[in-house]
Design a binder for these strands. Structure first.
Lengths: 208, 208
DNA sequence: GCAGTTACGCTACGGCTCGTAGCGTAAGAG
DNA sequence: CTCTTACGCTACGAGCCGTAGCGTAACTGC
């Protein structure tokens, strides 16, 4: 999760302070809330964390990488999806789950910014994918599996098309929530989630 | 469109050079392609445009405002939707239309960045809405109207719920395309557009 | 204990971008 | 021909970036 390379056997020398890691990530989130992405500076984060600026640069290559890790923690803690009994209710569940994370000021201001940076930085894009996107996606896959067990969705025969439609559905769900929240700047409340789930399950005909 | 205030009667003094406006916006798009949002500097844009930096600052308050206007021009020129005869085909049309704009390097790197900034700047959000989002939305509304004339969609009785579902559909379409392009970083080709249109019209059941 | 290794805090620095001020000049309006 | 506004140019203080150098702290293995 952090930038620390996967060095399972670091035998010698002074170990890196895990406390400093926590302090830096906490400070990053706090600075995001107060200043937003644009005015956030690494010097300020270091000062808030009570850490030298050099320490911060020894662990993260830049602003983007740091912020990805900082918000990834939130996705770790707040993503779970209880079984609500039906496909419709489960979709409402994922939607409200995503929305709750996106409405935090930390994530709201940070996510689009790092995605924007990632259009020119493949490594950053991979980091975002593994730290954030894939964790959202797992919720969608979980919901589909449940629906298949309930008989609400047919079991896929071909693995390729199954994966392709799963990608499609994920882009539709996550995209709609993100667009509603950040572009339209309207709240994703229960009413909206209900309407969206109805649309997704039944299609345009079902909205009438 | 530009930052020039709506002063219909500017009677006296030297008029602002429209040519400079064009040069600046062209230079901004070129710089976006070469450098991306993050490394784009206003001084560089001014130099490319053959214009003094002060001239640029007299017209735009900052990077975000300038970039919004620069990419808004592209949305002006490239958004239209020929009647393809059916709702399904028209949806594919909007999707490919959006995607073609989003796949340009200028817009790809710029749109998410300004949206990110807009989360802390209401004026910027309004500017994005009127310059970009509303123009996309008009395509969706046009497609719905056509479908209603063809009898593929029912005419709405209540204006309030009609507007609400239109907003929903717009967020779903635009959000899915944006997410597919920028987050999943996969191409929006005709195959994807076909699958998406099928999903949107028929719902999850129709994908089987 | 003691040497070896790595992380930390601190200071300082060149380089870049920002956004503005001041000045003389260019271009239309009346 | 004068008034008014825009332009190009230069210069500037301010802030942030990312790194280097140094002495100190923490932990490991002999």
């Amino acid at each position: 999760m952090s930038s620390a390379a996967s060095s399972p056997a670091r035998r010698t020398g002074r170990p890196r302070s895990a406390e400093a890691d926590r302090a830096i990530l906490d400070a990053t989130r706090a600075a995001l809330v107060e200043l937003g992405w644009g005015k956030l500076t690494l010097g300020d984060v270091a000062a808030r964390a009570g850490v030298a600026k050099t320490t911060l640069y020894r662990r993260w290559a830049g602003k983007s990488e740091l912020v990805v890790d900082a918000v990834a923690d939130l996705f770790d803690e707040h993503l779970e999806l209880p079984d609500r009994g039906s496909l419709h209710a489960d979709i409402e569940g994922v939607v409200l789950q995503f929305a709750a994370l996106l409405e935090r000021p930390e994530t709201k201001t940070a996510l689009m910014a790092v995605v924007a940076e990632s259009t020119r930085d493949g490594a950053l894009r991979d980091r975002i994918r593994s730290a954030i996107v894939d964790r959202q996606k797992s919720l969608v896959l979980l919901g589909r599996e449940r629906a298949q067990r309930r008989g609400e969705l047919p079991r896929e025969d071909d693995a390729t098309t199954a994966s392709r439609t799963a990608d499609l559905i994920f882009d539709v769900i996550a995209g709609a929530v993100v667009h509603r929240t950040l572009v339209s700047a309207e709240p994703v409340d229960e009413e909206w989630a209900r309407g969206f789930a109805t649309l997704l399950i039944g299609g345009l005909g079902a909205t009438a």
